[in-house]
Design a protein around this nucleic acid. Structure first.
Lengths: 237, 237
DNA sequence: GGTTGCAATCTTGTATACAAGAAGTCTTTA
DNA sequence: TAAAGACTTCTTGTATACAAGATTGCAACC
């Protein structure tokens, strides 16, 4: 998503730090279990502790880090139960979005736009690798957004962020990419045909298979990927 | 809810301030549109600006206040569209909870406990006024919690907090209280009979009627109630 | 070796100082 | 009277100072 055009004045230092840390987590530069202090971050990002604390507390409330009383901060461990619950919640929201979209007065333009991307008749246009990962994410987010409930969209966005790390580890096998294209197209077909029940069922199945693919992800696998990343672009942890 | 027994050390000043401000909002001591500065709050609560800022930023992210760049803070206006959306989201989550409860291996104990409270056969035990309001809130929260998805429970709790102000203005007419008892009992019956579809439909209808009752709430009405409260317990705004 | 006590260091939580800018006020001028 | 402009005051955003306690490393002792 591009920078929102809001006239909210310049981006604050705290926002910058928040974004930087979140990206550090998504890019495996900070991995579950890593410990650090506010001063570490402040020094690394050339700021004082105040905006760093603001960013960290925000990340804490969103579930990315833990604060240990007078003993530093830690990237929160990936909890399998929590991931399951987030997937369940995601399914609940996206199913509801399917029904809401079909109850709208007129079909949202997003349907046509998405159909252009995921149309199975234009296989030459297919993306791959990290691109299809980003496209998949925006497919789901834009469908929820099309349901026209900002609160739901925000909650869903937060879940999407939270699950991004594990979803990264999917989308490697070509057959999964093929399936993604096929399933997305089918979901859009059902929506365009104004068949919310079928869209919801297909969406559920689609998310569940992705969830299954991700189920085997262990902390070791993440650490492994993290090492690969670190070797490719050496930088401070 | 009583203080959680977590060994999380003492409650921080920032937490205290957060709670105090939230209560000020719920109790109409701070009403939409009110402006104030960090120093105001700090002085009133005998603290420095640092923990006040922490509390305020948390409230901002939860949607209760706005920060005006270098121009103070403001209690966020009640947005009708947002309230509608929150109600919609609430219905989505509680419907999902109905289905999840019926898919559990064994019915959760909460069902029996709630049935003791809302049993229509014991009309003598009925609560009224602010008590029934609190009971209604915990009825819905505990049902969602019984679905055994912590992430969903947390999101639902945040929505419940956010809607508390408008729900306060319901539960005045005795017929609404009667209906609440009847509808809650019916929902529990459907759940105990393992009929998720019926439970979901009855829940939807139940929430919708409460939403309708609240629909006419205007800012003026809130200001009015706020004045009554202020007259009853005079204190600093 | 294993353990205990102590002290130096590090950490967060809170308070305060400073900077850049917004807002309101008061004076001055036509 | 109305408007304009300078100035004072106030506000948040950031940096720094201080306090209480957690952690750790080391030395002394059994």
């Amino acid at each position: 998503m591009a920078e929102s055009g809001a006239p909210t004045q310049r981006e604050s230092m705290a926002d910058r730090i928040y974004q930087a840390l979140k990206e550090d987590i998504f890019e495996f530069r900070l991995i579950p279990g890593d410990k650090f202090s506010e001063s570490d971050i402040a020094q690394r990002l050339s700021a004082s502790r105040t905006p760093v604390r603001e960013a960290l507390y925000r990340l804490e409330r969103e579930g990315y880090v833990d604060v240990l009383f007078r003993s530093g901060w830690q990237i929160r461990q990936l909890d399998f139960k929590q991931i399951e619950e987030l997937y369940d919640l995601r399914i609940t929201l996206e199913r509801a979005a399917m029904h809401k979209i079909c109850r709208l007065d007129k079909p949202p333009p997003a349907l046509r736009l998405l159909n252009d991307i995921w149309n199975p008749d234009a296989p030459s246009e297919r993306a791959f690798g990290s691109t299809v990962r980003a496209l998949d994410e925006s497919f789901h987010c834009e469908l929820v957004a099309a349901a026209d409930n900002d609160e739901m969209t925000q909650v869903h966005q937060r879940i999407t962020d939270r699950l991004r790390i594990v979803r990264r580890l999917d989308f490697t096998r070509p057959d999964r990419i093929d399936a993604t294209y096929r399933e997305h197209a089918e979901i859009l077909q059902a929506l365009i045909a104004n068949n919310p029940g079928e869209a919801a069922e297909k969406m559920t199945a689609h998310i569940r298979t992705s969830q299954e693919a991700v189920k085997g992800i262990s902390l070791e696998r993440i650490r492994e990927v993290s090492q690969q990343h670190r070797r490719r672009e050496p930088g401070r942890p």
